[in-house]
């Protein structure tokens, strides 16, 4: 009997301790501490990248972006986009992409830059130059001594070159302008410029250029090429100047 009583005692102790423990546990659950404030919403994150980041004009590149905690995502110049995604872009000039991610937790910006280089000039065949281009680059003006309207010896090569070109381009019509330097009277210089233009015209017609291709006009000292008062400038202004006639 005595042994059985001991067993009961142990059982009672275990049960009692368990009860105490369980009661304690139950009691704890029944009275929790006051709940902490809810954590703030997470700030949005945003990143944007472009790959490759340098292209030539006309090529395209891939713009990729990722955001989190954002409800409203947009890229300047593109508009509203998915929170994460990618898109092909091919701007013609260098562009900075600016992504704005707005969420409950605030706004986050991210930028990336795409550099666009201009392509090297295409190595295409140059169009054949027009008669006007050739005229302007080939035909040489004729220069005069001061107060003279006859063609001096050192200008003969210019005349010959002009005749050669004009014979090769027999459809070209043109005007010869007679110009003078700033010295002397307005009226006399206009008459002198007229003689200079006629002098060049005569040299060309003598060499076989049809006179109906040639107009002459005198500008006297009214339209100088150079406006300084020195001999170098005056020489520039004493000339028969060729102008292509469209």
């Amino acid at each position: 009997m005595k042994h059985q009583t001991l067993k009961l005692k142990w059982f009672a102790l275990v049960v009692g301790l368990s009860a105490v423990l369980m009661l304690g546990a139950c009691k704890k659950k029944a009275a929790p501490p006051p709940p902490p404030p809810p954590p703030p919403p997470a700030s949005p994150t945003a990143s944007i990248s472009v790959s490759p980041d340098t292209i030539q004009a006309g090529q395209s590149s891939t713009l990729s972006w990722q955001t989190s905690n954002a409800t409203d995502v947009s890229i300047d110049g593109i508009g509203a986009v998915q929170p994460s995604g990618s898109q092909q872009v091919s701007p013609s000039t260098s562009t900075t992409y600016h992504l704005t991610a707005k969420g409950a937790g605030g706004t986050q910006d991210a930028t990336t830059r795409l550099t666009v280089t201009q392509p090297p000039p295409p190595v295409t065949q140059t169009p054949s130059p027009t008669d006007e281009d050739l005229f302007n680059s080939s035909v040489k003006d004729v220069y005069f001594e001061y107060e003279k309207s006859d063609i001096r010896g050192d200008q003969q090569p210019s005349i010959q070159a002009d005749v050669l070109f004009l014979n090769q381009h027999s459809n070209v019509s043109f005007t010869i302008e007679g110009h003078c330097d700033e010295r002397g009277s307005t009226e006399y210089n206009l008459a002198l410029g007229d003689q200079r233009a006629s002098s060049v015209k005569n040299a060309l017609t003598t060499a076989g250029i049809a006179s109906n291709r040639i107009k002459t006009i005198s500008y006297g000292k009214e339209k100088p090429f150079c406006t300084e008062s020195n001999e170098a400038c005056w020489q520039q202004n004493r000339r028969g100047h060729f102008v292509y006639q469209k």
């Binding site: 009277s185 009226e187 008459a191 002198l192 003689q195």
Partner: peptide, 26 residues
Amino acid sequence: GPDVSPAWNRKTGAQLTFVSGRTGLP
């Protein structure tokens, strides 16, 4: 050579003066 800039004898109207470059300088 250039002949330019005529002006009449204002009294008689029977003569003119003018500029000529026939010998070189006017």
